[in-house]
Design a protein around this nucleic acid. Structure first.
Lengths: 152, 152
DNA sequence: CTTGAAATTTCGATAAG
DNA sequence: CTTATCGAAATTTCAAG
């Protein structure tokens, strides 16, 4: 799909504030509200824009503990297997296959250390997991929800 | 601040779709639209809801390469130092101090391997960085923008 | 094929109960 | 918190570039 500079600016504006009106966006990109809506609809159906979400402070809803866990897997483990296995756990907020020593990196978010330990235990129980190495997050320094290239 | 079950359900609905109307949300939580708006306003000013954003497919906007980099730092490096240093780089989408071997974990997103290498080089040039260990993301299996505890 | 303008419907914000 | 109201925004339709 083709994305022009106007689309990029619209995307950037929606990332900054998903609730801004089409008229507001239109004013900034020199287009009418319906024209903006059509572009947004097109971007949505093309999958460029996956959706709109609220950014929530995890601590405020009681999720105070976070960790990144490196997974070491048995020889013939497929990414698909890791995907379905990690997706099962509600504590998993991110999961990636990676190059390097480990086979996968899993981002966990839990209520507290006890909850985290329990989630980790469940992860380790997956049949293809041979071992894990955990990094507990001490403080979150940066966390951008999404990133778009700078307009221009 | 106090968050009740209704607030939690409202948050969950907004995470699922930040553009749903107050009336729609109200219908699902058995409240009127103004009542929902008041709660959302309260949650926003309390910082529980940080904002609303569009979820964008990074690949669709030309960011095809991703990596997690472990930072090893000199003895007296503070989290604040790491924060300001990592925040400077536009490729950094996440940055955390962690327990374990490394001192920090940095999540990078770049256009391609060349761009990633360049960003990594800039990171390694930070005075307090003694060494790094990179995990290049081969495939993204799970990536939830945010997570809220299951309602109920 | 995309835009802009007008018309209709829906939504948001506020006041009152 | 709810109902009611007014102004604004979204959405559809349609005509024009």
């Amino acid at each position: 799909m083709q994305i022009d500079e106007v689309d990029q600016r619209i995307i950037a504006l929606l990332v900054a504030d998903a609730r801004s009106s089409y008229a507001d966006i239109g004013a900034r990109v020199s287009l009418s509200a319906p024209a903006v809506k059509r572009r947004v609809d097109r971007l949505r159906s093309a999958g460029v824009i996956r959706g709109f979400t609220a950014v929530v402070d995890p601590a405020a809803v009681g999720w105070n503990t976070e960790a990144f866990v490196e997974l070491f897997c048995t020889g013939r483990t497929t990414p698909a297997q890791i995907a379905v296995a990690t997706r099962r756990h509600p504590e998993v907020v991110g999961s990636y296959t990676v190059s390097g020593e480990a086979d996968a990196l899993v981002h966990l978010r839990a209520a507290d250390i006890g909850h985290l330990e329990q989630a980790l235990e469940r992860l380790r129980a997956e049949p293809f997991v041979t071992s894990t190495r955990s990094m507990i997050v001490l403080s979150r320094l940066v966390e951008s929800p999404t990133v778009v290239p700078a307009p221009g």
